[in-house]
Design a binder for these strands. Structure first.
Lengths: 297, 297
DNA sequence: AGAATTGTCTGACTAGAGTCAGAGAATGGA
DNA sequence: TCCATTCTCTGACTCTAGTCAGACAATTCT
């Protein structure tokens, strides 16, 4: 990436924190310290556990939160109680007054956002909102992390379950992992394989595996899935790039994969990432297309 | 503007402050308090006066800044001296160590921006940078304020000088305000006129006047100018909308104006804002086009 | 020359936002 | 049953980021 792009990003940061950041921090104001306001906001309609609250606010100190809650309690905005089945765990919920105050914050925030749009004419307003959506979407994409994990990891299993469920839905013949050529994912475990999980805010949103059998003619990509909610963020492309790098690092000069014709966006992705369609190189009963790509050492 | 747009703006704020805001504040970190880092940053290559520094940082308390400078001085990052011709005024400049530290901040900031782009593929990277540019541009547009001032106000005079200079450049016949039908701007003074000045971060970036002579058949727009650096932000449109509102408020049902053919973007603007070209309604020697618009009471 | 103004500095405070080290209650496991 | 663990709370701190009032020096105005 070039210096010009970096400069533009920094310029953006400056402008946006000046204009939006202030808005974000100050509207929470309302005479109340930001810490309390954030808490009030995060408690939500049906209350929650205090430890969960701490976690959501980025792992705040328990003593600190306790004190903040005491202040809110003193102001009559929340009530704190213990959980039925484990009385060490405290729960908070908003009182009517708390709810009212949160609604005030909410309206304030609405007004601040409206004030931002207000000086613009309709067409520019639409353009701003559209560009904001684009920035947000792409920032979200940039926030997704991709890490190698053991295929037995809960996040990996979550993705695989979702993957299998989706295949069962979309294949005309249904899908039963046991009938597939890779009945279990043990082969994707290091060192003879690799399994990647993508996460957004800690939640798993995609996976991709690869078999790296020493002596095999090619590294083979398996079980690639992206959560429907995070499609269009370039995650498939990222998985492929990452897997290719790892395959190259293990000395492979070819990567291949098979796929079902029902997965048309995947087929498109493979084409656009430089994969060539080749003859069947295995007997995978669920496959209709076989792809191969030579990778530069 | 609708609730959906407001919601999108708020969503944007949340994502961006989470991702960029943190970046903006934390990269300044480097062990040093944010206040000191900001100062270090604002001093600039060739130093500056302390009072100017305070002003640029949003009117900080002089005692506070004094203390911050003392800390930076103690750390050997800046030297403070007095101005030659007025020894009350203190000046700061960076020492070599200060410059080095600022460069570290700079590189840090670059790296943070790069890290933001890093997970994206080329095409998404370009799209993000483009969308950031658009957001920034439109936020800048939304930051511009438009206020009525006396035409003798320094900001008004600044704009008028720039306006005259630009006309002199672009008209094939040159431009001499004295030959024009409005030799001085007194007629644009309240109450028989109005004069608007647009400002960005306090700096004047555009003006527009209107004659509102009681009994005249129409309100007449005069001396509209937008700083070349802020063109494309919809400021001309904003001026017209604001002036039309004021004309309507004074009971006028028609607004008119004349313009020179050299100002082709202005001519385009008038057309697109609903003005109709009409026969000459005055003898303005510099005019080639005359426009009129009926405004709804 | 004397008075008012301007710019800076010092001291004394405040409030927010945390951190850290226990203490104490409830619970789960051996 | 007892011991370790989990969760919360309290007290005692720290560090930022200011604000406010007044002192002092240099300058400008009258």
């Amino acid at each position: 990436m070039d210096a010009e792009q970096i400069h533009r990003v920094r310029q953006f940061n400056r402008t946006v924190t000046e204009r939006v950041g202030v808005l974000h921090e100050r509207y929470l104001g309302l005479g109340r310290p930001v810490g309390e306001a954030r808490l009030l906001w995060e408690i939500g309609e049906q209350g929650c556990e205090v430890r969960e609250l701490r976690e959501r606010l980025g792992g705040l100190d328990s003593g600190y939160v306790s004190r903040l809650l005491r202040a809110l309690e003193g102001a009559g905005l929340v009530t704190v109680g213990a959980l039925e089945r484990d009385r060490r765990v405290r729960t908070v919920r908003l009182t009517d007054a708390g709810r009212a105050e949160r609604d005030v914050l909410d309206r304030r925030s609405d007004r601040a956002a409206a004030a931002l749009l207000e000086p613009l004419d309709d067409s520019r307003r639409d353009r701003l909102v559209a560009a904001m959506g684009e920035v947000e979407r792409l920032l979200t994409a940039a926030t997704v992390t991709v890490d190698a994990v053991d295929p037995g990891h809960p996040d990996a299993e979550h993705c695989l379950r979702a993957y299998y469920a989706e295949l069962a839905e979309s294949f005309e013949s249904g899908f039963d992992p046991v009938r597939s050529l890779l009945p279990d994912t043990g082969e994707l475990r290091s060192p003879q394989g690799v399994f990647l999980v993508a996460r957004l805010h800690g939640e798993p949103v995609g996976c991709a595996g690869m078999k790296l059998l020493p002596g095999a003619p090619a590294a083979e990509i398996k079980r690639m899935w992206v959560d429907p909610r995070t499609r269009g963020l370039g995650l498939g492309r990222r998985f492929l790039a990452e897997l290719e790098t790892r395959a190259a690092g293990r000395g492979f000069d070819t990567v291949r994969l098979d796929t079902n014709r029902a997965l048309s966006t995947a087929v498109g992705l493979y084409h656009s990432c430089g994969f060539q369609e080749v003859a069947a190189f295995n007997d995978e009963p669920y496959a209709h297309h076989w792809f191969e790509k030579r990778i530069g050492g």
